[in-house]
Write a protein that binds this DNA or RNA. Structure first.
Length: 469
RNA sequence: GGCGGGGUAGCCAAGUGGUAAGGCAGGGCUCUGCAAAAGCUCCAUUCGUCGGUUCGAUUCCGUCCCCCGCCUCCA
């Protein structure tokens, strides 16, 4: 069975065939965070999407090198550093740490490599030098180095691979006016920004004088440095298609020699944005959430992850609190079933290959997570039926758990069981004694008391089961 | 204005040229001391609009309406 993905480059769903002749190694690059603030759940939708791709490639037994950059030098960062007492490093490391903690909480596997832009200034300069030497970049009178789209196109290269560009028809809004540099053409973009007083102590030496890298160049430099001039997969949010990814292509294909049919990146994948209650997330609308905002409201990261994994990555997704509550219920159903299976299981199980291949068939189809969840929930219902009519054996339960483990290696919905505190446990025991004595008034009192503390009791034929509400 | 993605039950969300998965919420029943959990069951004659093609369209074509994203340092 082969994986098919929507390749932005081709604008259609195509078979995923890695560059590696053995079909084993996969180089994957994801545009990571700019660490100037806590990331919001919209950002995390993209990272949960890239994690799904990463995990599924692992599941398919590809040998994946997953690179995610950390952008730790950028206009907003420099401004904030200047306005505060911290150093660039101190400031960015703080948010990098927070970002990685959030990623971990959301069940995202750590990328193989997490290069920081500031630690790749050498390769960045090397790459810009290549572009200047090849005549597709120039230093302007302001000292900055720009990429010339005209010269690039003149070399027979194609600018506008990911989006259909029509510069004449484009709206050049306020954002261009902000960018007052001495460029030859409006479409040109900065590779190296000459040092200005506002940059403070944030600068590096280069053949073009002191300055700092432009936005796009870091990704070209780090990806080609770590994955080679051609690699398999590049992912990011849909807003990055243009200009960021388009410029990455231009910088890389402008700098390196590519043979016929060779490209910087073979497959591009873009995740759609998250809306909140039907609207774009904006601070002034009050619908701007970080992961920490949600966890402080009592939501669990796994619930957020589940919610994000309930919609196709190329569909715009509407985040709602109703949806988040629904995610909790759905996960509760999974947890309960798995808990019961765990109580019965013994020995090493074997995953049910029919279920796994049905699951795989769905994900092979450009990550049809909804279809995959259908397979999971149909399977859960069957397991519950067996549990209800007591036809589950220690072996079948173990097999079911092995099946789940395989599924969960892709979905990564952690099920951390809260340990039952001793005082809760003793209350539960007291209630059970009251029940035995048919003192239902007392036992219901205790149940209410437990509920008030966030614990629920389920009476089963095997005795009471205490779990977190 | 240019480019792109959508409109499927109360909500979220798959899907197919042959008569609508799954999840959440809701109703009923079984089980239970009562619950909870679970099971069974009900819940879109209908897939934004209007036309067309077809034996048959939600699925193909065209029209229109609406929503959303990008258009130069935002995932």
């Amino acid at each position: 069975m082969g994986l098919k993905i929507f390749n932005t480059l081709e604008r259609e769903v195509v078979e995923f065939v890695p560059l590696d002749p053995a079909g084993k190694k996969v180089g994957m690059y994801c545009c990571g965070p700019t660490v100037y603030d806590f990331a919001h759940i919209g950002n995390f939708r993209t990272f949960v999407f890239t994690d799904l791709v990463r995990r599924y490639l692992d599941f398919k037994e590809f040998d994946v090198t997953h690179v995610m950059n950390i952008t730790d030098v950028e206009d907003k960062i420099i401004r904030t550093v200047r306005e505060s007492d911290t150093s660039l490093k101190e400031f960015t490391r703080r948010f990098e740490k927070a970002f990685l903690e959030d990623m971990d909480a959301l069940g995202c596997k750590a990328p193989t490599k997490k290069p920081r832009a500031t630690e790749y200034i050498g390769p960045i300069i090397k790459l810009i030098k290549k572009l200047v030497d090849r005549g597709v970049a120039y230093q302007a009178s302001d000292g900055s180095v720009y990429f010339s789209i005209e010269k690039y196109r003149g070399c027979g290269c194609h600018y506008g691979q990911l989006v259909n560009l029509n510069f004449g028809e484009m709206r050049t809004g306020e954002r261009v006016a902000d960018d007052e540099y001495e460029k030859e053409s409006l479409a040109d973009f900065a590779l190296w920004k000459a040092r200005v007083p506002e940059d403070g102590e944030v600068f590096w030496k280069s053949p073009w004088g002191e300055g700092r890298p432009g936005w796009h160049i870091e990704c070209s430099a780090m990806s080609t440095e770590l994955l080679g001039k051609s690699f398999d997969l590049h992912l990011g949010g849909e807003d990055l298609k243009f200009p960021h990814h388009e410029d990455e292509i231009a910088q890389s294909e402008g700098a390196f020699e590519y043979g016929d049919g060779e490209h910087f990146v073979k497959f591009w994948m873009h995740g759609s944005h998250l809306l909140v209650e039907g609207k774009k997330m904006q601070k002034r609308l009050g619908n701007f959430f970080t992961l920490r905002d949600l966890t402080s409201k009592g939501y669990q990261p796994r619930e957020i992850r589940y919610l994000m994994l309930s919609a196709h990555y190329r569909e715009q997704f509407n985040f709602t609190f109703d949806g988040l509550d629904g995610a909790r219920s759905a996960l509760g159903r999974l947890d309960d079933c798995l808990l019961k299976l765990g109580e019965t299981a013994a020995g090493e199980g074997t995953a049910d290959s029919d279920v796994i291949s049905a699951f795989e068939r769905e994900l092979d189809d450009d990550f049809n997570v909804a279809g995959a969840w259908r397979v999971v929930f149909d399977w859960i219902r069957d397991r519950n039926k067996e549990l209800a009519d007591e036809s589950v054996t220690a072996e079948s339960a173990a097999n079911a758990l092995a099946t789940w483990e395989k599924i969960n290696s892709v979905f990564g919905i952690e099920n951390v069981e809260a340990p039952v505190p001793p005082e809760i446990q003793s209350l539960a025991e007291e209630r059970q004694a009251a029940r035995k004595a048919k003192d239902f008034q007392r036992s219901d009192e205790i149940r209410d008391q437990l509920a008030a503390q966030g614990w629920v009791i389920e009476d089963t034929p095997k005795g009471p089961r205490v779990k977190k509400a």
